[in-house]
Design a binder for these strands. Structure first.
Lengths: 213, 213
DNA sequence: TGACGTACCAAACGAACGTTTGAACTTTCA
DNA sequence: TGAAAGTTCAAACGTTCGTTTGGTACGTCA
């Protein structure tokens, strides 16, 4: 492939991905037709099946493209934190772990949160395989880190709190899914610190009102 | 209408509502066909449009049937609590307000949580009018009660925490949406108290680690 | 009794769906 | 240059969609 070739080829693929992302966010998977995607992208109807095999394949590709950089940064931050802890440079706290998990959400394309939020609203039969593949490693790593910093919690209790944490996050992500304005990103940026505070309190609470740091 | 008429009539209507509820939960709105609903209900295809006007009308009816009793109980509990506070019988606390809001979820049909959870995953263009109508009164009442018990929070901060509260709840509701087993109800029942603890801590936290009761 | 309204049914409507086809066009590389 | 591979196209495939139609069955009530 020449440079020119690569450019046109990638351009078509990416135009499809961009259009599909927009429409999937707005109308969901079943509510979006391949025809609408092709029209929005300005490409031929058959191009989507040529590049992605099927509508499901396209849906999966749209999601993977966005979520992989986020998860990579999450793991990067966590492993950097754990190294600093090993060296004795830092003390491992709930807040630091949560920041590794949530902060990457602030520095990404404004459309991404909406997509991740929409993803969690789709029927599980469609999304479960995609989500499991995408989040298995990240969920395991952060679950482990939180267990390390909250050793007095039973596994079951930690699983529940982890669950609520994900729920709070997803609801923040879904919050502005239907709106496409610039305020989306601003509101979201200011929401992340509040989310961290909220989740930290929920994670650390004990029955007598004491909280961990 | 005679009694017999009413019975057959209601039976058909309810069979459609039951079947639609099951399928909407599992596959979403756009992913469920009216034909599948009619087949599942064992009624004629045209019966759904006869009774509910359109597919959207049916979707709205399915939701309203389930959510109204819950919201009525929420308001009942809250107003009873507020009366007891006025008389001096009780002191208003975050936990008591949260219990008014969450406890009604425990004593209802196991299918309801899944439906409410699925509802929040649908495209906003479909669900927003339905949700706004259903929750305007309840949201206003509980937002006011929480403002009363957390007077030092700014309106904006309270709005955020209220938002995260709803998110935690919805994620609990969505948790078992795809599963139809009995364990759904058990797990959900044990999840509500944990949800209350989690949200109480998130609602009450201050920057110095202190929490309100 | 007989006109009337409600409930239900089989059948069909046109439209939109995801996907496939086969030819045309472009780029690759020996 | 010429065969092979990659990409895009108009057109059509068969299927399924939400909704409508016209007719039948049956209870109500003047």
């Amino acid at each position: 492939m020449s440079v020119a070739d690569t450019e046109t080829s990638v351009s078509t693929r990416d135009r499809i991905l961009d259009a599909a992302e927009t429409l999937f966010i707005e109308h969901g998977f079943a509510g979006t037709s391949v025809r609408a995607i092709a029209t929005e992208a300005g490409v031929n109807l058959a191009a989507t099946n040529y590049h992605f095999g099927s509508k499901k394949g396209l849906f999966s590709a749209v999601f993977q493209r966005r979520v992989q950089p986020i998860n990579e940064e999450r793991l990067q931050r966590l492993s950097r934190l754990q190294k600093e802890v090993q060296v004795g440079k830092r003390k491992l706290t709930i807040r630091l772990v949560l920041e590794c998990f949530f902060e990457p959400l602030r520095h990404v394309d404004p459309g991404i949160p909406a997509l991740v939020g929409r993803m969690h609203g789709e029927p599980a039969s469609l999304t479960r395989p995609i989500l499991e593949e995408a989040f298995l490693e990240v969920a395991g790593a952060f679950h482990g880190a939180l267990r390390q910093v909250l050793p007095e919690l039973s596994h079951e209790e930690l699983r529940w709190r982890f669950h609520f944490m994900i729920g709070s996050m997803i609801h923040l992500l879904q919050m502005h899914a239907p709106l496409g304005s610039e305020s989306t990103h601003d509101t979201f940026t200011s929401g992340v610190p509040r989310l961290i505070n909220f989740v930290q309190a929920g994670m650390a609470h004990t029955d007598n009102g004491k909280v961990y740091d």
